[in-house]
């Protein structure tokens, strides 16, 4: 994939272990997307989704190939790429406000400015009145909103999310999807969103990338128009739209049967 793209994975492979027991988590994966895209990656568990995200986050160096952002190769982590994990991974000794201000704090932003930054995002995710609480006093959904606010308080250009809503109940998940979408629409952020929920992927993504395991590969990439429509039409309407259902079924078919048989 050429460096024309804002984010470009070029022939990226990741192998864990050696010899007989080696696992090819990613096998010559190429993927590029532009600034402001919302890329959803779906696929069965073990197909390399987390590895893909880890490589872009800088947590995992590729065994082969390269990943670049805005033309420069990714080496290690950077605050330009914010991450939200499935388990919120909050700092339990810090208050809600302390968690939200952590990024600006370690980056040397002054006390006043980082408090303002934290307040801004805590208000947006609806946690401002809980600012003096501790994470263990929050529900799962609130913890995940805090993790989102913590990542956003750093003003990342790219937001990486690894099954962030996987542990939430259906109702909370739906609300979080809408919140995330409105945050994304109001920003210039590029999002890489890992999920095993096909509906979630088709609903949220401008692009849906389907992966298959052993070795981890991208088998299809589809454009999805619904990310832009949902705000105007409401999510329930979108999700029952025949075009939405058709795309969802197509993606599901790809995951279950592979590229050869799907869509026939």
């Amino acid at each position: 994939m050429s460096a024309r793209h804002y984010v470009a994975f070029s022939d990226v492979s990741v192998t864990f272990g050696h010899g007989e027991g080696a696992v090819r988590a990613l096998d010559r994966v190429s993927l590029g997307f532009g600034r402001g895209s919302f890329v959803c990656v779906v696929g069965p568990s073990g197909c390399g989704k987390t590895t893909l995200l880890n490589v872009l986050a800088g947590f995992q160096a590729p065994s082969d190939g390269r990943v670049s952002v805005a033309g420069s190769e990714v080496h290690g982590t950077g605050p330009d790429r914010g991450v939200v994990f499935q388990q919120a991974a909050l700092f339990p000794w810090l208050t809600v406000a302390g968690n939200a201000a952590f990024g600006p704090m370690v980056r040397g932003v002054g006390r006043r400015a980082r408090a303002e930054r934290a307040e801004h995002w805590l208000r947006i995710v609806g946690l401002w009145e809980f600012r003096d609480r501790y994470p263990y006093e929050l529900s799962g959904g609130m913890q995940q909103r805090l993790a989102l606010a913590r990542a956003l308080a750093n003003d990342p250009a790219i937001l990486l999310m690894d099954e962030p809503f996987g542990a939430l109940d259906a109702l909370t998940r739906e609300r979080m999807q809408e919140e995330l979408q409105s945050v994304w629409r109001a920003s210039f952020m590029t999002v890489l969103f890992i999920t095993h929920g096909v509906e979630e992927a088709v609903f949220l993504g401008t692009d849906v990338v389907v992966m298959s395991p052993r070795p981890g590969r991208i088998i299809e990439r589809l454009a999805s128009p619904f990310a832009h429509e949902a705000g105007a039409r409401g999510s329930r309407k979108v999700k029952s739209d025949p075009a939405f259902v058709a795309l969802r079924e197509q993606v599901l078919g790809l995951i279950l049967e592979g590229p050869e048989t799907a869509g026939q």
Partner: peptide
């Protein structure tokens, strides 16, 4: 220490000693 906690701090911009001290 849960690994995601350390990764979260690093991706928020914390350097080695900041991770040691703050996480």
């Amino acid at each position: 220490v849960p690994r995601p906690r350390i990764l979260a701090a690093r991706s928020l911009g914390a350097g080695f000693w900041q991770v040691v001290w703050h996480v």
